[in-house]
Simulated assay, not measured.
Amino acid sequence: MKVGLLFGSFNPIHIGHLILANYMATNTDLDTVWLVVSPQNPFKPSNTLVHEFDRLQMVTLAIADNPNLGVSNIEFGMPKPSYTIDTLTYLQEKYSSYEFVLIMGEDNVPLFPKWKNSERILEYHQVYVYPRSGSITSEATALPNMTFIKAPILDISATFIRQCIREEKSIKYMVPNDVAEYIQVHKLYQ
């Protein structure tokens, strides 16, 4: 099985994440896409993150009706911050018959050489790169084993959604209804 891994804080998961994950699962050679909830991204501050189990639950709710997508909390039991190479190594050991493909935004391509053991990621895994709004990376800057995928671009961010919630503005259509209800019931991002 060929599994795409879309890592993220998903703080909260939104329609852009879902459209991208579903597009990758249904319009590439991937059999499925797992959304890997990262407890702490080493490149992002943690002070705006809601609890990892809340974020995991929101992803679970968001993909419940989509058989092409899965959710993983694999990094919850790993040292924090989590590094992609460590997670890939662990997953490959646990699911030795699976082929794992890293899915990342093109804005990460210039930063990729700074990732922990980036050369090992490229040696053992394919990387599918999707377009990001405002990014000027081109396929010419791709590293070996990177493939650019012409996926839809949605200029929506979790930061914007959190700001809307704090300002008591509607987030309808930006997140699935179940996620919006979860946020409201648990008073997240207020």
Rank of each mutant, 00 (worst) to 15 (best):
V71L: 08
I171M: 04
Y95E: 13
W115Q: 10
T147N: 13
I103K: 08
F7P: 01
A142V: 00
S138N: 12
S82W: 04
T159L: 14
A62I: 10
L69M: 10
N11Y: 05
I136R: 09
S82G: 15
P39M: 06
A151F: 06
H17K: 02
S82R: 08
F7E: 02
I171E: 07
Y189R: 12
V179M: 05
D86N: 13
I183F: 04
R55N: 05
I121V: 15
R55D: 04
V59D: 02
C164D: 03
G16W: 11
I19H: 10
K2I: 07
E119C: 05
L18V: 08
A140D: 13
V71T: 10
G4H: 09
F148C: 13
N117Y: 09
P79R: 05
P45E: 10
F148M: 15
C164W: 01
T48K: 11
L111I: 03
R166T: 15
T32W: 02
Q40P: 08
G8V: 08
Q40C: 08
K80Q: 14
S157P: 11
H17A: 03
A151N: 07
I161R: 02
K114L: 15
S82K: 07
L122S: 02
F53M: 12
N22W: 06
R120Y: 13
L91K: 06
L61G: 01
D155Q: 14
A62R: 03
P144H: 11
K80A: 12
Q57P: 00
L6Y: 11
E119Q: 14
L154M: 11
I156A: 07
S138V: 03
L20I: 06
L188K: 15
S170M: 12
T48D: 15
T26F: 01
